[in-house]
């Protein structure tokens, strides 16, 4: 007789929450890409209403608020459910850390509106979004059989090496996301209008302002990220044969990220105010970056679990 997995439904909710969070990050990225962040000038209400007319950029900003509220509600439901049914104390605590993160995230979102998008708050809002994604992804992983029961068969030495590579990769990707947020919120995305080389063959532009510096740091650090993530994928694939698909997916995501970054530059539109970024490739670059971070994080956790099993 088959016994239903008692945590399967919770896991389903956690996975749904992860996907919803990725969608939320995409919608949030669209808000910035379309400069819609201040199209609703008040918070927490929108033009003094719960549901304003969804015209123009209000569609993006109020849509972002609505998806965010849904994700917040789902997080509270999951945390409550976990608290009532999961015997593991750390998982219960983790679920409430996720609730705290989503509340602070909502508050930061409100502050960006009230204080008219200060760079520090906007960057924090972006960084916390990625952190929240990692928290809920961990919750989803913790509800899987591999995590709950452990999986023997891994070479512990190799698993530990994969874990160490994972820590380095997660740190590198997170730092790159911060640099990306800096690029984005200082309007440096189009500061260098060529990739990889200028029409005259130059690889490096003249560093005429801080925006060019920010853009080139982001590009330069991408090489570090590529190496760190490739190392993790390689080591994880060797240490955890059952996670090879996960490792291969990570490699594809990071290559896709480089391609999306290049696409942003290749799709710049010239206007009299300067080059303008195309919204959708830019937003996809943001959400794919979040997916790279989450995938690194989950692979690192799996390596750690295997090394402890």
């Amino acid at each position: 007789m088959l016994h239903p997995d008692p945590s399967a439904a919770r896991r389903l909710l956690a996975v749904f929450l992860v996907l919803s969070t990725l969608f939320l990050i995409f919608v949030g990225a669209e808000v910035k890409s379309r400069e819609a962040g201040l199209s609703v000038p008040d918070w927490p209400l929108s033009y003094g209403m719960l549901w304003p007319p969804m015209v123009g950029n209000v569609f993006y900003e109020h849509g972002h608020r609505t998806v965010a509220a849904t994700v917040g509600l789902l997080t509270v439901i999951l945390a409550t459910w976990v608290s009532l049914t999961d015997p593991r104390r750390w998982v219960r605590r983790l679920s409430w850390w996720a609730v705290a993160a989503v509340c602070v995230q909502g508050l930061l979102g409100g502050l960006t509106v009230i204080f008219l998008l200060p760079v520090a708050i906007s960057m924090s809002h972006g960084a916390l979004a990625q952190t929240f994604l990692c928290l809920v992804a961990w919750l989803a992983l913790a509800h899987g059989r591999e995590w709950r029961e452990g999986r023997a068969g891994a070479d512990r030495g190799r698993a530990r090496a994969a874990f160490r590579a994972g820590v380095a990769a997660v740190a590198a990707v997170f730092l790159q996301l911060l640099i990306g947020a800096w690029v984005r919120h200082t309007e440096s995305g189009a500061a260098v209008s060529f990739f990889p080389t200028a029409p005259d063959g130059a690889w490096v532009p003249e560093f005429v302002n801080d925006q060019v510096v920010a853009q080139m740091i982001h590009r330069g650090f991408a090489v570090v990220v590529l190496l760190a993530v490739s190392r993790l994928a390689w080591r994880a694939a060797r240490a955890l044969p059952w996670a090879r698909l996960h490792a291969a997916g990570l490699a594809l995501l990071v290559l896709g990220q480089v391609l999306l970054g290049a696409t942003i530059i290749w799709t710049l539109t010239d206007t009299f105010e300067g080059p303008v970024l195309a919204p959708v490739p830019t937003s996809l670059h943001v959400v794919n970056g979040a997916a790279v971070l989450m995938t690194c994080w989950l692979l690192t956790l799996r390596a750690w679990r295997a090394s402890e099993a």
Binding site: V40, P41, D42, Y47, G48, L116
Partner: peptide, 21 residues
């Protein structure tokens, strides 16, 4: 017959952003 926000982005003066629904 639609809503606007009026958002001034000065460098020396005080920035403002007000809804006119």
């Amino acid at each position: 017959a639609t809503l606007h926000n009026i958002h001034a982005v000065p460098q020396r003066n005080k920035e403002f952003n007000v809804g006119m629904p």
